[in-house]
Design a protein around this nucleic acid. Structure first.
Lengths: 148, 148
DNA sequence: AAGCCTCTTGCGATCAGTTGCGACTGGAGA
DNA sequence: TCTCCAGTCGCAACTGATCGCAAGAGGCTT
C-alpha cells in the first residue's frame, strides 16, 4: 500500500509456505493481487482482479483466504469508517502499525505512523496486563483540503 | 455501557428532537433499548429487544436508526475485532473516547480511557491538519486471564 | 380539527461476508 | 512415480447490512 515499489512479489506466498500452509493456484492469484495493490482493495475488487489471473477463483475462496491471512497476521482489515459503504478493505501488514484517517467529505485516506501510538499500545499492555496481537486505529473527519 | 446507572432515560430522544429530527414510535423503542443496554449490543439484539417494546419495528428501521445515530455522533459502532462473527456492535457515545480490547480467547471486552489516546488524537490533528470527528481504537489480543 | 408535505416505515430485493457439503487436489511419504 | 489423506475448492444457502418503492405518519400551519 504505502510502499508499492519495495514490495517483493511472492513474499506472502513464501511466508505462508514457510508456515506449512498449503498453496493452491487460487491462493497464488489472490496473494499476488494483494501484493501488487497500490491502494486499499475491498473483497470484491480482490475477487475481480484475482479472476483475471485465474478465472476459477470463487468468491468464498477469496473470503477464506483473507480470513487465513488475517489469522496469520499477514494482512490488516480496515473499514475506513465505511465511507464508501459497508465493506472492508485489506492491506499488507507492515512492521509498524499506522493510523488510517478517512475524510468524510472527499474520501481521501491518509496514513500516519506515530511513536505516540506505539507508546499507547505499550501502556495498554502494561496497565491492563493485555498482550496485544492486533490493533486498529481509524479516524474519520475532515482533511486539510476539506476543512472549513 | 460502562455507566448504566447514570444513564438518563429519554436523553437520546431529547438530543434528536433538539436537532429537529422527527420522532416515531419505532425510534423511541430503539433508542430506549440502546440507552438501557448494560453490554454491547449488535443490531439483531437491538431489533429483538425493540420488538418487545413495539412489535412493529422492522429490521431495516433498526439499521436506519443506527445509521442516523452514527451520523449524529450519538453512538459508536464497534466490531470488537469480529471475535463473535462479522456483525457490528453499538454503544452510546460518551464524552471521552475509550479503547476496546477484545480477548481473542475468552471474548472478554475491556474498555480503557487514556490521556495518551487523547494526546495522540491531538497530534494527528496538528501534524496532519485533520479535523477529527470520530475515532475508533480496537485492540485484539490476550487478557490477563488468558495469557500464557 | 383539518390539511399538507416532507420524512419515515415496512417489505422485498440485493449486496457483503460466512457456512456446510461433496468433489477435488497439494504435497508428503513410500 | 504412485498413493493417500487432510486440506481446499466451488456452489448454494444463509446471515449482516443496505437500498428502492409505495404507503404511512409526524408535526407544523391555518
Amino acid at each position: 500500500m504505502p510502499f508499492p515499489q519495495t514490495e517483493i512479489p511472492g513474499r506472502l506466498q513464501k511466508q505462508l509456505a514457510g508456515r506449512g500452509i498449503r498453496m493452491t493456484a487460487q491462493r497464488r492469484a489472490i496473494l499476488s493481487v494483494i501484493e501488487m495493490a497500490t491502494k486499499h482493495l475491498d473483497a470484491s475488487q480482490i475477487l475481480r482482479k484475482a479472476r483475471r489471473v485465474d478465472a476459477t477463483v470463487d468468491r468464498s475462496t477469496v473470503y477464506r483466504t483473507l480470513d487465513l491471512l488475517k489469522r496469520q497476521g499477514l494482512i490488516d482489515e480496515l473499514d475506513l469508517m465505511h465511507i464508501k459503504g459497508e465493506g472492508h478493505y485489506y492491506e499488507r501488514r507492515l512492521d509498524r502499525d499506522h493510523i488510517h484517517m478517512a475524510c468524510l467529505r472527499c474520501g481521501k485516506i491518509t496514513e500516519f505512523a506515530s511513536k505516540t501510538f506505539d507508546s499507547l499500545k505499550k501502556q495498554l499492555e502494561r496497565d491492563c496486563h493485555f498482550h496485544i496481537v492486533v490493533s486498529r486505529l481509524e479516524v474519520g473527519g475532515y482533511c486539510s483540503g476539506c476543512r472549513r
